[in-house]
Amino acid sequence: MGEVNPDLQSRVVKFPGGGVLVAGIDEIFNWARSNSMWSLTFGLSCCAIEMMATAASHYDLDRFGILFRATPRQADVMIVAGWVSVKMAPFIRRLYDQMPDPKHVLAMGGCACAGGPYRDSETIVKGVGEIVPVDVFVYGCPPRPENLIHGLILLQERIREESILGVRKREPITVQG
């Protein structure tokens, strides 16, 4: 093992047993995390149909390492696809809380972003951002599968910049419809 670059001192992680793994760990973790973003199977409404279409044969989300998992405990990304009603909101928060860190939320469609066409309905939450922190807003009604993929790629890029030590950046990305 060579000497430790002073700049990287802060990134040294001590393993039990005395071994030292130097630098690059963020890169390794981020490489793994960004290329295996497992997403929660969680469709709310119309946008969920487009989410399914994105995952199916034509657009094939598997290419990006994005698989749909049925339980929040195995998921890294929650794609909120559809309008969030007041009755549904506590469940979304609970699902989010059940996901292990690091976790990310992508709001798909005008409804999940800001209430969409139902902004003047009293039973609709004006965007899922009021309940959970959102990383990516993908606008559109529904967003085209290309737009959703674009949003997911931007999220991958963001994950690559994260550090396992530092606080994650939280300004949301916006993809216009």
Partner: peptide, 27 residues
Amino acid sequence: YLHRGLEKMAERRPYRHFLPFTDRLDY
């Protein structure tokens, strides 16, 4: 869990303005 009061919303809009909302009934 998806209730948004569409029938009530229709009453607040001119006839033609309700058509886009019907898209989102059985999407």
